[in-house]
């Protein structure tokens, strides 16, 4: 029999760093999923019952034509809800699809906020509820963290393939 050492075997992890990395590797997909999914569901629940405020917030970005504003006022919170739900409790493929849509939305949100700041508009972010203020540095940090989580869920599927 060969007695070749297998350094990739989790039982052979000796140093704290190796154990730590293995632990992070185990929980990170779940942490990313829970973070992303709950953030999107939380944001959607705050917005879904107030389409008029949502329309005002969207209009504040001065990006969409007036015809599309009320449609998006209903559609965006709904999409956030289903995307959040897919990431949180969806099957493997639903989680990946949700993460892809999520990343797309986060990029669009960041671009929309950036154009508003560049044009010097005085607008409301509407990120988590209304009257949440003009997007600031923290907004971009938060969106980037969520974007990283979305990319990781998209790449890994956020956990085991056969789980529900």
């Amino acid at each position: 029999m060969t007695t070749e050492p297998r350094p990739t075997n989790p039982t052979n992890l000796t140093t704290l760093g190796q154990r730590g990395r293995a632990f992070l590797g185990l929980i990170w997909p779940y942490a990313a999923r829970i973070l992303l999914g709950s953030a999107f569901i939380f944001a959607s629940v705050l917005k879904i019952g107030a389409p008029t405020e949502m329309a005002s917030t969207i209009a504040g970005y001065r990006l969409l034509p007036d015809v599309l504003t009320p449609i998006f006022a209903h559609f965006l919170p709904s999409l956030e809800f289903w995307v959040g739900l897919s990431i949180l409790i969806g099957s493997f493929h639903f989680r990946r699809a949700g993460a892809l849509l999520c990343a797309l939305m986060l990029v669009v949100f960041m671009l929309a906020a950036a154009q508003g700041l560049v044009r010097g508009l005085d607008f409301d972010c509407g990120c988590f509820g209304f009257e949440s203020g003009r997007p600031d540095f923290f907004f971009f940090v938060r969106d980037l963290v969520l974007l990283l989580a979305a990319i990781s869920v998209y790449r890994s599927g956020g956990g085991r393939k056969t789980s529900t």
Partner: peptide, 17 residues
């Protein structure tokens, strides 16, 4: 949500400051 909460008022940016 449009049926339950009513249509989004298209009359415009009420929150715009």
């Amino acid at each position: 949500s449009r049926l339950i909460f009513g249509p989004a008022d298209p009359s415009g940016p009420a929150l715009e400051t």
